Amino acid sequence: MKVVALHNLKGGVGKTSAAVNLAREANRDGMPVLVWDLDAQGASTWVLGGENGLGRKVKKLLAGKSPLGEEVQHTAWERLDLLPADLRMRELDRLLDSASGGDKHLKRLIAPFSEEYALLILDCPPGLSTLSDQLVRAADRILVPTIPSPLSVQAFSRMMDHLDLGKRQRQRVAPFFNLVDRRRKLHREWLETPPAAIAPAMQSWIPYASDVERMSLECRPLADLAPRSRATLAYRQLWQELKATL
């Protein structure tokens, strides 16, 4: 099983839309996929039609004392499943800090899912945290949606400074431009020549599109909501680029 995390220091950069749409594209590609919504806001859970809240106590689940697999929900798409968000996940860092597995606890926690799924996508909350540190151990790729703006690049640099990665670990982190508006000169320029601070960035990029906003209204990924839209095709291309690196 491959593990892909969507993470960023900043909020509002499109982590959830990327998580949901990449999951659906992988699912369309024939892969059994699980999305774990780690953000207490529960946006991925909402879009995929899940029910917020884990049935068992979160503390026991994250300690490995209760099986996470029993909390998985099926979605409307065959072989695309969901581990839903829970408001109590706002205490995630404290719970991970107190776990006995050290910085590999998250990796050990998700290992049993490899028996059923080919891909696990983690929709992570924003910020620098214990979860951020454990993602380096648990994820094969950490995708970082990045709006083409100086503040977004600064946030990416701060995230990388916090993680303090070795050369091989750095290769797991893959920023890509999201919410791109080609009417803006800076966006066009950075598509041609990305800032050195985020190199190497992925070649694929996602345009700003109203269809993405409609996802939360109709609770469907773009492949089903607007199969021919520019954003849908862009996510399809991003998935193919990602798949080639996994």
Rank of each mutant, 00 (worst) to 15 (best):
A111V: 11
P112A: 03
L119W: 00
A99N: 13
E91H: 15
L120F: 06
E116I: 10
D123F: 08
G101S: 04
F113D: 07
G166N: 11
S129M: 12
K107F: 12
L96A: 10
F156M: 13
D123P: 08
S129Y: 12
V153Y: 12
L131Y: 05
T146C: 13
D93S: 07
P150Q: 06
F156T: 12
C124I: 05
S152K: 06
L135W: 02
G127L: 14
M160Q: 10
A111G: 13
L92H: 07
S132H: 07
L143E: 07
L106E: 07
L135D: 03
S152I: 03
R108G: 09
L135I: 09
K104G: 02
P112V: 06
D103H: 12
R137D: 08
L95Y: 10
Q169D: 15
L96Q: 12
P150E: 05
A155T: 04
L151Y: 10
I147N: 13
A99R: 04
S129F: 10
G127M: 12
D103P: 13
F113R: 05
R108I: 00
R141L: 04
I142P: 00
V136A: 01
S129A: 15
R137Q: 13
G166I: 00
K104N: 06
I121A: 01
P145Q: 00
S98W: 10
D123N: 13
I142D: 02
I110M: 04
V144E: 09
A139K: 00
D133N: 14
L95M: 11
A138G: 14
L143C: 11
I110K: 07
S98H: 10
S152Y: 05
R141P: 04
R158W: 11
I110Q: 05
R108K: 13
L151P: 02
R137L: 12
L96S: 08
L165C: 06
K104R: 14
F156Y: 15
D133K: 15
Q134M: 14
Q169N: 10
S114M: 03
G102C: 02
G101K: 09
K107V: 12
D123G: 04
K167G: 04
P112S: 07
L106G: 01
L128K: 05
Q154C: 06
L95I: 08
L95C: 09
S157V: 15
P125F: 08
V136L: 03
T146K: 09
L106M: 04
L165P: 02
Q169A: 06
L119Y: 04
S152L: 07
E116Y: 08
Q169K: 14
L106P: 05
G166P: 01
K167T: 08
D97V: 03
D123I: 02
D97F: 10
R108P: 00
V144W: 08
S149E: 14
R108L: 00
Q134D: 00
Q169G: 06
L128E: 13
L128N: 05
L95G: 09
Q154V: 13
D161H: 12
I147H: 11
L143R: 02
